[in-house]
Amino acid sequence: MAKSVLDLTDSHAHIDDPGFDADREAMFARAADAGVRQIVVPAVDRESWNRIAAICASHPQALPAYGLHPIYIARHRPEHLAELATQLKTRRPVAVGEIGLDFFLTELDQERQRHFFVQQLRLAREFDLPVIVHARRAMDEVTSTMRRIGGLRGVVHSFAGSLQQAQRLWDLGFCLGIGGPVTYERAQRLRHVVATMPLDRLLLETDAPDQPGACHRGERNEPANLREVLDVVAQLRGESQASIAAATSENARRLFKP
Score class of each variant (00 low, 15 high):
V36H: 04
T90P: 00
Q61K: 07
E47R: 09
Q87D: 02
Q113F: 10
H76N: 06
I55T: 02
D102K: 04
R137D: 15
M139W: 00
G100E: 06
L84H: 04
D128M: 03
L63Y: 01
V94Y: 02
E25W: 00
H134M: 10
Y66S: 04
I52L: 08
Q110H: 14
D33I: 03
P93A: 05
I52R: 03
L68T: 08
C56K: 03
P60Q: 09
L105R: 14
S48W: 09
S58C: 11
H59N: 15
F104E: 13
E25T: 11
A22C: 02
Q87G: 08
L68E: 05
A74M: 09
Y66T: 12
G67F: 04
T106L: 09
I55E: 11
V96L: 13
R136G: 05
R114P: 06
R125W: 04
Q38I: 06
D109P: 10
Q61D: 12
Q87F: 07
K89C: 03
L121R: 04
E47G: 13
H115I: 13
F116Y: 15
D109F: 05
A95V: 09
A65P: 13
F127A: 11
Q61H: 11
A54K: 11
G97Q: 10
V44F: 00
R24M: 09
R37I: 04
D17N: 14
H80P: 08
F127I: 12
V118L: 10
V44H: 00
F28N: 00
T90W: 00
L123Q: 07
R112I: 07
A85R: 13
H134G: 10
T86Q: 11
E83F: 01
Q120Y: 00
A124C: 08
P93F: 00
H14R: 06
A124K: 01
A43Y: 03
A135P: 08
